[in-house]
Structures are given as C-alpha cells and as structure tokens.
Nucleic acid binder design. Sequence first.
RNA 1: GAGCCGUUAGCUCAGUAGGUAGAGCACCGGCCUUUUAAGCCGGGAGUCGCAGGUUCAAUUCCUGUACGGCUCACCA
Length: 483
Amino acid sequence: MEEKEIRKERLKQLKDLGYSSHPYSYPSEETISSIVEKFREKQGEELEKFNVSTAGRILTIRRMGRATFLHISDGKEKLQIFMGENSLGKKKYSDFKLFNTGDWIGVKGSLFRTKTGELTILCEDFSFLAKSLLPLPEKWHGLQDVEVRFRKRYLDLLVNRRTREIFEKRAEIISKLREFFQRKGFIEVETPMMHPVLGGAAAKPFVTHHNSLDMDLYLRIAPELYLKRLVVGGMERVFEIGRNFRNEGISPFHNPEFTMLEFYWAYRDYNFLMGLTEEIFQEIAMKIWGKLEGEYQGKKINLSSPWKKLKFMDSISNASGIREESLWDEEFVIKKANELFPEEEVLPSTYSKSLDFLFDKFVRGELFQPTFVIDLPKVLSPLAKEHRQDGRLTERFELFIGGMELANAFSELTDPEEQKNRFEEQVKRKEEGAEVDLDYIEALKYGLPPTAGEGIGIDRTIMIFTDSPNIREVILFPLLRKK
RNA sequence: GAGCCGUUAGCUCAGUAGGUAGAGCACCGGCCUUUUAAGCCGGGAGUCGCAGGUUCAAUUCCUGUACGGCUCACCA
C-alpha cells in the first residue's frame, strides 16, 4: 500500500475506534508557544506540579516500544510530548500507533524535564484532531524547492522555521509603522484600488471591467492622488498601507502586487521628511535588530543619522564623468545613454528614460548605505513642487538602502495650473501612467496646503530587515505562472 | 521578453560515457519505557517534467514544450 492509502486507512481505523475523524473543537488552554515561554526557566518539582492542555501538529515521532516521544508545533514553537504505556494505559497507548507525523493532536498532561533537560509534557490523555493524508516534507533538510515553497507556502511554513520568522517580522514592522503614524497624529484611511483614471506613478496598469456600470477600471498603481484629495478635505496627516498593482516584469525586487505605505503631512516639506524617514527606519531597526546596525547580504548597514545626501544630477555626473551641464542637453543624454551601453537589448528612447537609465547604470548599485538621492529633474517628477532654488529641479528625494529604492518623497505640487501643464506635458511625452486627471486638478483648485508626501515600499523594507535577497521571500503568495 | 541553468520516490539528493534506476529521511512490519537526524533487523514505494525524433533499445543523445532559478531589460 502506498503511504497515502495507509494514512487514509488509519483515519478509518481511528473512526472505528470511536475517534471523530473531523472534530468540531478542542478545549486547549494554552498554545505551545506560551507554554514554552512560561516554563523556560522552571525546573524539577516547581515544574511538575503544572498540568497543561494544548494542541498542535506532530512533526516527529520516535517510538521505542512501550514509550514514544514526539514533537508537536503550533507553527512557531516546538514542544516534546512523552507517551508511556503506564500513564496512558495499554489501549490508549496502542491507539496512538495510528497517528503519523503531520497529524494534529490535542494533549493533556503534566510537565517535566528529560535527562537532557528538555521541557516535555508527560501525556495523560490525547485527542485526535485531524489527519494529514499526505506525508510531510523531510524534517532535516526541510523543503528546498523554491517553486514548491512559494506555491505551497503552508508546507514551507510547516517545515522551514525561517519562513515563519520572516512573516512574523513583517507583521511586527507593519504594526510598528501603524503605531508610529498614529502616535504622530495621523489618520489611517483606505482609498480605492479600482481607479477610473490612471495616475500617481509611471507604470503600466492592470485593467478590469465593471459589468453593470459597463466601465473599464485600472487596478491602482499608486494611491497618491486620492490621498492628496483627502488633504484638500482637511485630513492634515493621513496615511494608507495597501496594495498597488503594476503590470510590469517580475524580478527579485518586483512583484506585480506589492505593498506600499503612503503618507501626507500638511505644512511640511521634503527636508522635514528626510529627518522623519531616518526616524522611521531607526525605530524599525531598534525593534527588529535592537540597534541601528544590521547586516544585509553579508554587508553591514548603518542607519545612524545623518544619512548621506546626493544630488541626482551630481551623482550621475560624478559616477559617469559626463559634465553636469551636458546632462541637461536632452539629445546628448539620449545619444550618450545609447552609446555607452551598446550591448543593451532595449535602449532608452526618451530623455527621462535615458536619465533614469544612466542613474541605474552608474549610481544605484553603489548606494548600499542609506542615501537620499535628492533634487530630481522636473521631467522625472510630474507631481513634485519646483525646487525653490533651481527651476529645472524639484524638491524630491528617493531613499536607497542596500542598492534598492525604498522610498520616494517630495514637497507636493500644490498649484493646479502647473499641475495641469505637467500632466499635459507627460501625455505629450507618451509616458506610462500619464493621464490628465481633471477631477484631481479641480480638487487642487480648492486649495492644497503646502504638503510633504512620501511612499515607502514595504516589501523591500521587509527584505532589508529580514536579510532576504528576493522579494518573493517576504510575500506569502508571490505571483507565479499557472501550472 | 532575451541568454544561461535546472526538473529522477512524499522530501533532500546520487546515478546511468544509451541496456527501463539508488541512498538518507518519511512510510510499513518486528525488537525496544528518557529519545531527540533514536537504534538494530526486514519490507514497500518511481510513466527519471511533458511530447516528438534518432536507435534493436532513450531517464541518458537530439528537437520542441511546460514550470522554475539566475542574469539583463521596463518598474517601487
């Protein structure tokens, strides 16, 4: 008989013995984690007076005749169970022979420590909770196959402890961010994910359709324009944590749906945001690393203030040797970008793409320590306010850590007339995600106060703090091809 | 989307310079009441990703294809 059939057969046998095959509930009193936590330091008689009742999945079984050891898990911690014929009785002990690894079990008993000092429940009674009809992946090597890990994340979580840790840290970081912004007097909102008009970023959208309204809708590429409408409406400090959707390629740093934090703070500018950003990341670091220094992919990252600031145009000029004044020559930049990398398959065709391209080639990879790249040109920044000292630039920064762009922020453009011109300019350049959002411009006409806004890529932030080289490691169910 | 690599038992992996496959874990049976990658003895388990081609013979060679990984490109 194959293993699957054996397990099925054993479920039937348990049923015949009077066990419910799919019980409705189990009155466990504590999780395995809480027991492990509570009795970590306790020894001997102090320990043995405690009776506990818990439940979990069986990970390993070691049978030795009339005694059996198992480890059960609540997904986070493991706890050893001892089953002896003496304490359970012959019949009950023999019933346990029908259990396999992977099965769910409820356990009651007293606590003790084994010879080697491991905390263990001396089992006095157990309940059958669910059968695993399929065998678990291997206990020693875990589940290695990347594809299976992502497609069957439940198995990955079961067997690979690190996976659980990543998603616990993810939850901690997100709740830290919520707490941070609430503490600063922000209100959390949810804006539409289905947009009739595209905007807020430069990206290809997913398109969907509403039947009864007979209307095409875009899955949002950014919540930006809605959040600023809320600032117009008097929400002076507002934030949203949510999913964005971009119909672009997939890479170690890009998943088609990803989570972003966006926030807007009225009466502030981008200079203020740089300080705030340092504060945010430092609070996360203290929570996750316990200090301001951590390691990402084998290299130290130091988040102590102040972080380096690099002017966008300077950084390209310094790294590439192209004179800064030449970088303002649109034709020259396009030509140069194409000449410098003749082996590239897809070469940039527009000025803004060429600038971005040069930045990526010469600068981005070098930005391992936290760095604000500041004062990006207007052509790259249709929603940012003109720089107060240089009309060709905007008051904008992008934050890089570990060679990844983690945040993007600016002093928001508040002038409806100029916003309209910038949108139209974009449409003329046929840029991705470019549409003139007249409704947004109307909102601006009611007056957007001076406002600073920022988006922080949550998935990439999690990558840094969990030392993950690939975005899929920090997303529970990353998009994969249909099999 | 392009280039390179991978896909063998439930899992982790060997292997066959072309003669239809092995190990460890898991699983089953036996012995075993402090084990913890328990141990000892015995056993079952595979359309060698899928489809074609070459060949007396293909898991192995060739072609195509699916899925995945890495690198590059668009993008946060």
